[in-house]
């Protein structure tokens, strides 16, 4: 799926490189923050996740089919953290029966709409509702992102309207552009990561199977563990 999703091969291999060089999977396991990105088709979910993970705006994206995965390693307060972004298909039929699996163990949700497309904003309640259905706990951090704010001449969703909506659902709201370099896509995801880092440890703990794996590994090779 992801091989065909974004731009040219160069971008993809740079994504590959960033994964391999910054993330070592060895004994010092980085903490993982799993973030799911949802919203209508064409609002720019794929571009935003690309921008964050590769620092590029993909010139060409294709329709995302199912679920794509991108990740990037960052350092927060001296701790190495792996941020996994799960980029989902916008078409309704996919999320009905396909996407549930990927809601498991998510640490945060990013809702995206397109500020030049009112319909994408109006779909948000449905996305929020669906998200509620899939998430086990209520305290998973969620943020709202209005994308394409470089297109100043075709704004359909006024900032104050979006802000009101965000307040109503108690989410932070950001307007940004995956296309413009200086529109702090990076900062948005980093803010979220900071928030996750300082969040309750329960939510942040790794999926149980990883813990089991770590424990058993420690038992066989290093009796006294960490």
């Amino acid at each position: 799926m992801s091989s065909a999703t974004g731009g040219d091969r160069g971008l993809e291999s740079s994504l590959e490189a960033s994964i391999n060089s910054t993330c070592s999977y060895g004994s010092t396991r980085a903490r993982i923050f799993k973030i799911i990105v949802i919203g209508d088709s064409n609002v720019g979910k794929t571009c935003l996740t690309y921008r964050f993970c590769t620092s590029y705006f993909p010139e060409r994206t294709e329709a995302t089919i199912g679920v794509d995965f991108r990740e990037r390693c960052v350092e927060i307060d001296g701790e190495r953290i792996k941020i996994q972004l799960w980029d989902t298909a916008g078409q309704e039929r996919f999320r009905k029966s396909m996407v549930q699996h990927y809601y498991r163990n998510v640490h945060a949700v990013v809702f995206v709409y397109d500020i030049t497309n009112m319909a994408s904003f109006q779909s948000l309640p449905a996305w929020i509702e669906e998200c509620k259905r899939h998430l086990l706990t209520n305290d998973v951090p969620r943020i709202l992102v209005g994308n394409k704010c470089d297109l100043k001449d075709s704004i359909q969703v006024p900032t104050d309207l979006a802000q009101k909506f965000a307040d109503l659902h108690s989410m932070p709201m950001f307007e940004t552009s995956a296309k413009n370099t200086n529109d702090h896509v990076e900062a948005i995801f980093m803010t979220l990561a900071h928030k996750l880092k300082s969040h309750k440890p329960l939510v942040l703990s790794q999926p149980p199977e990883n813990t089991v794996e770590l424990n058993s590994g420690a038992k066989t090779s290093f009796p006294c563990g960490c």
């Binding site: 799926m1 992801s2 091989s3 993809e12 993982i32 799993k34 995965f69 996994q84 999926p207």
Partner: peptide, 12 residues
Amino acid sequence: CDMASVHHLLSQ
């Protein structure tokens, strides 16, 4: 052996 790594590998 986790979902993300295997999904990532296979989907490329």
